[in-house]
Amino acid sequence: MKYVHEFRDKEIALGVAKAIGTEVDLARPYRFMEFCGGHTHTISRYGLEDMLPNNVRMVHGPGCPVCVLPAGRIDMAIHLAMRPEVILCGYGDLMRVPGSQGASLLKAKARGADVRMVYSTIDAIRIAEENPAREVVFFAIGFETTTPPTAIMIRLAEKKKLSNFSVFCNHVLTPPAMQNILKSCGIRNIGHVEIDGFIGPAHVSVIIGTTPYEFVAEEFGKPIVITGFEPLDMMQAILMLVRQVNEHRHEVENQYRRAVIRDGNLRAKEEVSNVFELRDRFEWRGLGPVPYSGLRLKPAYTKYDAELRFDMGELCVADNPACKCAAILRGIRKPVDCELFGKICTPVTPMGSCMVSSEGACAAHWTYGRFRDHQQRPAS
Rank of each mutant, 00 (worst) to 15 (best):
V4A: 15
E6Y: 14
E6D: 13
P29L: 08
P29K: 02
R31F: 10
M33K: 06
N54T: 13
V56P: 09
V59D: 05
C64E: 03
L69F: 01
L69I: 07
M76L: 06
I78P: 04
Y91W: 05
D93R: 00
Q101C: 10
A103C: 10
L105Q: 02
R111D: 13
G112W: 03
V118C: 08
T121R: 04
D123E: 01
R126I: 06
R126A: 11
I127S: 09
E130Y: 04
I141Q: 03
T147N: 06
P148L: 05
L156R: 14
F165G: 01
V172K: 08
T174G: 00
T174E: 05
N180S: 14
I181K: 05
D196G: 15
G197H: 09
H203T: 10
A217D: 12
F229N: 01
R243M: 07
R249G: 04
N254H: 12
K269T: 01
E270P: 02
R279L: 13
W284P: 01
W284N: 00
L295V: 03
K298L: 03
A300F: 02
T302Q: 11
A318E: 12
D319A: 15
C323R: 07
I328F: 13
I332E: 00
R333L: 15
V336Q: 08
D337H: 09
G342H: 10
G342I: 09
W366E: 01
G369T: 13
R372Q: 11
